[in-house]
Design a binder for these strands. Sequence first.
DNA 1: TTTGTCGGTTCATTATTTGAACCGATGTAT
DNA 2: ATACATCGGTTCAAATAATGAACCGACAAA
Lengths: 267, 267
Amino acid sequence: MSTIDKALSLLNHFSETTPEIGLSQFKALSGFDKGTVHRYLKSLSNIGFLEQDPVSKSYKLGPKLVSLAHVRQATVPVSRVAAVHVDALADSIQELAHASVPQTMGMSTIHFKDGGIRGTRVGFDISEILPFHATSSGIAMLAFGPSSLLEKLENQRLQTFTENTSTDLKTLRTLVEQAHKSGYAYSNQTYETEVCSVAVPFFDKSKTAIGTVAIATPSSRMNRAQQNAFAVSAMAISRKITNDLGGKIPESIQDKWALFETAIQAA
Amino acid sequence: MSTIDKALSLLNHFSETTPEIGLSQFKALSGFDKGTVHRYLKSLSNIGFLEQDPVSKSYKLGPKLVSLAHVRQATVPVSRVAAVHVDALADSIQELAHASVPQTMGMSTIHFKDGGIRGTRVGFDISEILPFHATSSGIAMLAFGPSSLLEKLENQRLQTFTENTSTDLKTLRTLVEQAHKSGYAYSNQTYETEVCSVAVPFFDKSKTAIGTVAIATPSSRMNRAQQNAFAVSAMAISRKITNDLGGKIPESIQDKWALFETAIQAA
DNA sequence: TTTGTCGGTTCATTATTTGAACCGATGTAT
DNA sequence: ATACATCGGTTCAAATAATGAACCGACAAA
């Protein structure tokens, strides 16, 4: 692990629920030496990745991240494009929908929207990383994205989240194959109890999967018919997102989706 | 300069007009050794600050920046709040308006909006850093923000941008005092020729200036009356932004602005 | 007064970064 | 067909920067 990696890993300790962190707390969270952490924090503050509250002395994420994110958004307008379609999806099916993109450790959500106010509701933290092996978004990404993602996982121990989480490589491979065969990924309480989800990939111009659209619902509302309906909805949205991004869906998947849709409509 | 600073400085070479950069180009831009740059790029890619195009091999800003910016926005909703008021300002006065926040090297714009389509127009690059000494936003920040900003500048050589740029500390101090006295900053072609601007600060809960709202216009459309009208408009917007952020305007400035406004209205 | 904790600094030791030389692939003038 | 240039990427001994135990002053509670 290089110095750069170590310094930047500090940023991962921030989240919506933990927006401010002090020096000692950083030391505890990261396990690095206090002096080292302090130097990291100074560097990160200098370039604007962090800023320090002058009275409480604690650190929070800095404004530079926002300006860089702007440039990123201008470069790759995935968020903007995905957002409008995810919103439409959430509105139409009245369930939580989200779009996510792969990061090193899992899927990072770029946009989500709650589906109205129904009885139970799926909680969602946008800064949370959805692990590849335990979420439908992750499985979809593994199934349709670059195979390097799956290879990276092979050397890691897969964390258990619920009693349904698959933690061995063999069953993970089965899940991925299943997703590949059916054209979408399904997960039943593998990350959080009482939450089911369905996910499909969307693609860039080189027909590479670059992210996923997913629908999450309390498992009490999930059944086979719902699952199929959700998959169809997600596929439709993925087509729109892919299209708006100037991307292309691989023919094999296009065919699979078309078949699935006609089968569901027939039923 | 630490390794961290050097690695992260690479990110500054990206902008809306330069969204993709290759290894050799990075070497040229940064002056670092090729091997070193490559290690930096690998580290930055690993954590998602960059991503590499698998075919062209060039690098662009990565998705992690977006997710971190999200958390930042949730922590400090300056952008969201400023955006709506800046948009309203641009619409009402039909000129370019922007909100900016201080960074190490100058003011970084968090939001801007063009003011309709009139004859000439001010070009604006959101990823550009507005130098403290040569823009109204910068002067406003120096005049009303923490005095440490001005102190930092004292050791640096001030860059010349136009023939109107003040590059010596003495005239800079005069400009800052002027802004402090009048309650707003004015600049006439000190950064770009043919562009004039007016800027006022907005504040946080501890009555510290944390950013500026500015109006920029082609100098052909600027005159004394316009300048006054723009200042009044900017002050009104600053009040709204400050208020929405839960901030407070220092009494001395509140009084100054009130006096100024009544004087203009009387005229 | 003591004790603990906070953020921050110091400097000899240590481990990481550095960069010239190298590689293979691709491109392109001769 | 050949030579030459440029691209991204890698290597490893030498040079340099990162590290962390000990320390400081400020503050707060016991």
